[in-house]
Design a protein around this nucleic acid. Structure first.
Lengths: 225, 225
DNA sequence: GGTCACCAAATTGTCAACAATATGGTTAGC
DNA sequence: GCTAACCATATTGTTGACAATTTGGTGACC
């Protein structure tokens, strides 16, 4: 009843918050693939109880983000190139259909906003602001999905993307990749503005598949062949 | 070292097995949407410890199959028609791309096997064996995805389907729906045999969307409008 | 010097007891 | 008869202690 009692009714953050925190750490490349997540460490840093931390681990394991081994605990799952390739194939299908839906459903303001983001990205290319470019790119893609009001697909794509965030983070938007992405975006935008859903879908698919191809070449460059 | 020691080294089934069991119960329509899953009950029926049961709950909640409320435990999540509609949209995109891939990649034996299943389904239509029809239908769809070696997409589609299994179970394959599905399958198969990936994709999409339309009409019939 | 068995520390798995909350029925009051 | 407060029961949330296993290092032996 007192202020104090109201101030500390909870002993710690719920499992979902802990899971969100771990997810954000992975996205920010603080937890890298293969890294072991020690329970005590997470407890110290989140303030959650051991029980809740383990609940969070389970959730993230079900999402495919963590791997749990008997008596060895949780570690950030490493996606093989083969798996990443499959993830991108799924993304191409899902984002493609969203691009088509966007073309049909979006209002003029929506389209204008999309064009604005694309414009900002082009200025990033000129100034070489790779990080900002990546951020805007995320906005661009998620806007297309948000407008079509398909939360399920938006959620799926977001989950599909997480395992490769550590790759996108550092070395993805370097060199020609920004130029290529900009070209792709322009093609998509043109199809949308022309009101051609099928063309928009095809362009979006090609865009995602180009991303995969770039990732593949990057992988070869990093790990040899 | 003795036979006895080998016979009972484990105190109970692991969390993944419990999760699988619950999933199968939901798929078999034994656990229906909205039903509460009491921990003690699951413990009694699976032989797992309370701890493991709760781990299983967390995993299934992350999959979207269960809903966990504070102090009220887990219950089978109820998918709204709006959500089901979105799930089908995603399925249409994913299975569509798989159909196209199948057309490109499948061996002659694969295609022959697909044709055989379709043939069996047609005999089911004649004899009105709805349950068998549904089972074969599952095989048909999963075969298309398995051949393309895209486990990620196969897994996604399987998860997308689970929330509506209770609908498919009872009243889905009645009346004209089997005929319609058979027509769709024939169109898909024709495109595949003709080696036309784009046509196969379109036909598959139409098939999934027909399924959604049927579900929608069924929903209207059941719950009024 | 190298290899293997063994030991101690760290880490995770499991369980049982207790606290907190929801649920359903009962009773008092109108 | 009806509503609302109340209470017993059922159910879930939380914690702590202990068991099982891995891990990294140490020393004996070849």
């Amino acid at each position: 009843m007192t202020e104090i009692a109201d101030a500390l009714p909870k002993s710690g953050p719920p499992a979902t918050e802990i899971a969100d925190w771990i997810r954000s750490q992975i996205r920010a490349n603080r937890f890298v693939p293969g890294q072991r997540l020690v329970e005590v460490d997470i407890i110290r840093r989140t303030g959650g109880s051991r029980f809740k931390v383990r609940e969070a681990f389970q959730r993230l394991a079900a999402e495919g983000l963590l791997e749990i081994e008997e008596f060895r605990g949780a570690s950030v799952r490493e996606a093989s190139l083969a798996e990443v390739s499959q993830l991108y194939r799924a993304r191409a299908a899902l984002e493609g259909i969203c691009a088509a839906d966007f073309t049909r459903l979006a209002s003029d303001e929506d389209k204008e906003r999309l064009r604005e983001i694309a414009e900002k990205m082009e200025t990033c290319v000129e100034s070489g602001a790779a990080e900002q470019f990546g951020k805007l790119n995320g906005e661009w893609h998620s806007m297309i999905m948000r407008v079509t009001r398909n939360d399920v697909i938006a959620d799926l794509v977001s989950r599909l993307n997480t395992p490769v965030h550590h790759l996108l983070f550092e070395s993805f938007y370097r060199g020609d990749r920004m130029n290529e992405a900009t070209r792709d975006h322009r093609a998509i935008l043109d199809a949308i503005l022309a009101g051609d859903p099928e063309a928009a879908e095809k362009a979006m698919r090609r865009h995602v598949e180009n991303g995969l191809q770039f990732l593949t070449s990057l992988d070869r460059a990093l790990f040899g062949d």
